[in-house]
Design a protein around this nucleic acid. Structure first.
Lengths: 207, 207
DNA sequence: GAGTGAAGCGGAATTCTCTCCGCTTCAACG
DNA sequence: CGTTGAAGCGGAGAGAATTCCGCTTCACTC
């Protein structure tokens, strides 16, 4: 897979996929903009691949080439926020980033996740729904799980850290958030409190 | 589902939806049988509404009239097992049924759920996927949650019982089960152990 | 047993997703 | 610049989900 070496300009970076061609980048930009407009107007439900193609003035084939499928489109729409989020919890200041005690960081991670959901829950739920099969294998999920599992390992909670990470990520799924938010009328603050308690309990080897 | 019952024949039972007409019951039977055959042959993925109609020799309209949509079909396929399960945890012998201490029953409930998943995980995952929006509102989910929330209330765990119930039900989702089973190679026994630990921890107000 | 209204039924039509494939455009190289 | 192969593009078309609606059948009443 890897490309050539790297020192002089123009050479692709080792280990990185070759950059998008100019025309491809252009249609990605157009498509993402159109997608956001459609969402703003009619919500995620109205976001169809056909409709997007029509709206953006490109062929369906192009939409699929850019995003692979509906799930890919959802992930692409979340991508810029995700980038920020990842760099925050990997490089950013504590308690989200390194420096704070591990469990502190776990709590901060989940709270930050809930903050994202407050804004993007629909899109998250949409992405989860569309990536049903591949969800747990997708890069984003694996990154989050690896991060949490690492912290839980450091904290030495007496239990399979990867399993716990899965459980915690389930607790902040977009679907569940919408349910709690809409049907059960739990406020963001209540949700954070609940999630905090769940973390506390799950990470204390009581009995 | 319940028949007419009661003393005099023909009178509809109060509060029950009127029984299915004979022809409707017949096509339900035919469709469910055909659906099970299709699943047995090619797995859930092959279970399409169109294909089912063709296989059962009825029109698509009939399939939709019987099951509303794909999600409804999935639930219908799980129904007989679900009936058994519900009567087990409501009326059956302890520790699943009444008689055992509440937390014992919670553990038993989740283990029994995992036992079902061992057999029907695909179908559960399929049902979850198809009922995405309505999942938490659906009768089955509400029944399970009410049951768990009731037990958690009795056990007086110091935390919103309904919220905990949602978390616990998330832990036994079909999707997650498949992931743990297939990708992470966790055996049923390991899963039960993990779930057991999760229950223990979530229900002990440690700190 | 004829009448009747609700429940069922079929299947064409609509709307999507996703695939396929021939044609076009980049951009790296000489 | 001209060449060239990979990458991109468009859109027809296959396969599905779901809706619609006119026709049929059931089950109950008189």
């Amino acid at each position: 897979m890897a490309a050539k070496g790297g020192g002089s300009p123009d050479l692709p970076v080792v280990g990185q996929p070759p950059a998008e061609r100019a025309d491809a980048a252009r249609s990605r930009r157009i498509l993402l903009a159109a997608a956001r407009e459609m969402m703003a107007e009619c919500g995620v439900r109205a976001l169809t691949m056909d409709g997007l193609a029509a709206r953006a003035g490109v062929g369906v084939g192009t939409v699929y080439r850019r995003f692979t499928d509906r799930g890919g489109l959802a992930l692409a729409l979340l991508d810029s926020e995700e980038q920020r989020f990842q760099s925050d919890f990997i490089f950013g200041p504590p308690p989200l980033g390194p420096g704070a005690p591990p469990l502190e960081r776990v709590r901060a991670f989940l709270c930050a996740y809930l903050d994202r959901l407050e804004v993007e829950a629909d899109l998250h739920a949409f992405a989860e729904a569309q990536n049903r099969e591949s969800r747990f294998r997708a890069g984003v999920y694996r990154t989050h799980r690896a991060h949490l599992a690492g912290l839980l390992t450091q904290a030495d909670v007496g239990m399979d850290p990867a399993y716990l990470a899965d459980v915690l990520l389930g607790v902040v799924s977009g679907e569940l958030f919408l349910h709690h938010n809409r049907e059960r009328r739990l406020s963001p603050a209540q949700l954070k409190a609940n999630v905090g308690q769940v973390v506390d309990r799950l990470t204390s080897p009581c009995r």
